[in-house]
Design a protein around this nucleic acid. Structure first.
Length: 408
RNA sequence: GCGUCGAUGGCGGAGUGGUCAAUCGCAACAGACUGUAAAUCUGUCGGCAGUAGCCUACGUUGGUUCGAAUCCAACUCGGCGCA
């Protein structure tokens, strides 16, 4: 079996490490922030810019590209990378997140990261009526989706997800899983986790039929919610999972829901068990604080919609915390977006100019803010990597956190 | 000059006797956003008071009425028509 990951240096006294993931489209130097480009485009950001700022990889979405334009068309276009003119490494999520966002979370404000008090809602408390409005329905075999675009019905199974991801052609793909809600109780988490494990094996089997030469790396997705013993069990089962042909996973994703306050702890439970010599991707995370915690506890890659999503509504990252450019005080603030971050937008434009663009609803507002935020996160995680290589991770962490959160 | 229609909170525009401090949209002011249902969503938005409540308000003045943004009269301003 070819080697697709190597560790360069570890963080003393922790699980963290700096390393390299090798893909057919280049090396991902880890830790790395993978930029989300759901529909084979990073919203508002040109691929050339991503390249210029040394973005390590782009993550697209199986469900969205399957619906539009269709994975067959993406395949004809040469796969997501060629289709969007991105030459670097690519990932695709399996559609597992949509099981949550279009299912349990649909029509609610529930986020996969819960903060503060978590109301425990048992499965029986949910009415049939509310379930009827959801766009995703789960059964043992797979998930039936109702398209959010035109209402048409679609069936996803682990096998189908592998086939679509094979067509999309990303370098790193994920097993089809169920991202559970942070509101789900232990009984449901257990049930969903066990099912996700069965789906993982089916994904592994189907993937190896499609890709005997192993052009794509397949990552399993650890579940278990906020329950320590479930997380540990999930990590153990997936780490040991092997097909009758001897195939195993190339890496692991850590998915599902988290408690905002102890994300590092949850990640640690898992990474203490996962094999050290395979890469670990923390799905859908996150904020600077989360990333520092997760890197320290052994995660190698991350993806998150936050940089581009918050940018579109006027929020930009700065060294001293995020700011919302729509706030009145920025109307006449002619300083750079962030004096300590040399992104192209920050070097060339003022806060007042961006504030004007956002108020005028000019598309350059979201574009420039997205460019800045992508730069900020890519650079932050690159800086974290460098701090590990330089043996100064903890110093860098404290320095950054003190500025960014200002003691909060 | 005559006729006619209209004048509502920053703007647009509902409301036509009590349930109106007044639907809604925009603007404004905040907040949220963690494997993108998202250039989205939520809250506030006359003044004062921590909810109770009080005050000032629907062009102006006066009137009808238990009660008026809503009915009547005059006036002021504006649109349109005729001279």
């Amino acid at each position: 079996m070819k080697k697709n990951f190597e560790i360069e240096k570890k963080i003393p006294g922790a699980l963290g490490r700096a390393g390299n993931i090798y893909t057919p489209h280049g090396v991902v130097q880890t830790p790395a922030f993978i930029i989300v480009g759901t529909k084979s485009t990073v919203k508002g950001v040109h691929p050339d810019y991503l390249k210029n700022i040394h973005t390590q990889a782009v993550l697209a979405n199986t469900y969205h590209l399957y619906l539009q334009p269709g994975d067959d068309i993406v395949a004809q276009g040469g796969g997501i990378g060629a289709f969007m003119n991105w030459q670097g490494p690519t990932f695709t999520d399996s559609g597992g997140f949509q099981v949550f966002s279009l299912g349990e979370a649909f029509g609610t404000k529930v986020s996969k990261v819960a903060s503060g008090e978590i109301p425990m809602v048992s499965e029986t408390d949910r009415t049939q009526q509310s379930k009827a409005h959801k766009l995703a329905h789960i059964d043992e075999e797979g998930v039936t989706f109702k398209s959010h675009i035109n209402g048409s019905l679609h069936r996803f199974t682990p096998e189908r997800s592998m086939e679509i991801q094979w067509n999309l052609g990303a370098d790193i793909i994920f097993a089809f899983d169920e991202c559970t809600s942070p509101l789900a109780g232990e009984a449901y988490q257990r049930q969903a986790m066990d099912r996700t494990h069965r789906w993982a094996l089916r994904s592994l089997v189907r993937h190896n039929e499609l890709d005997p030469e192993k052009k794509q790396a397949l990552f399993a997705v650890v579940q278990g919610g906020r329950f320590e013993h479930l997380r540990q069990e999930s990590a153990r089962i997936l780490a040991e999972m092997i097909t009758e042909h001897g195939d195993t996973f190339d890496g692991f994703g850590i998915g599902g829901s988290f408690n905002k306050n102890d994300m590092g702890t949850a990640v640690k439970w898992v990474n203490e068990i996962l094999p050290e010599d395979k890469p670990r991707h923390l799905l859908g995370i996150g904020e600077p604080r989360d990333i520092f915690e997760a890197v320290e506890q052994g995660c190698d890659t991350f993806d998150c919609v936050s940089p581009t999503r918050i940018a579109r509504t006027g929020t930009v990252y700065t060294t001293y915390g995020p700011i919302n450019l729509m706030n009145a005080r920025f109307k006449t603030d002619f300083s750079p977006i962030d004096t300590e971050t040399p992104s192209e937008p920050s070097l060339k434009y003022t806060r007042a100019y961006l504030a004007h663009l956002f108020r005028a609803k000019e598309m350059m507002g979201p574009i420039l803010a997205s460019m800045h935020n992508v730069f900020f996160m890519v650079k932050l995680v690159a800086d974290i990597r460098q701090s590990i290589l330089d043996d100064r991770f903890y110093e860098f962490k404290k320095e950054f956190m003190d500025k960014y959160y200002g003691g909060k």
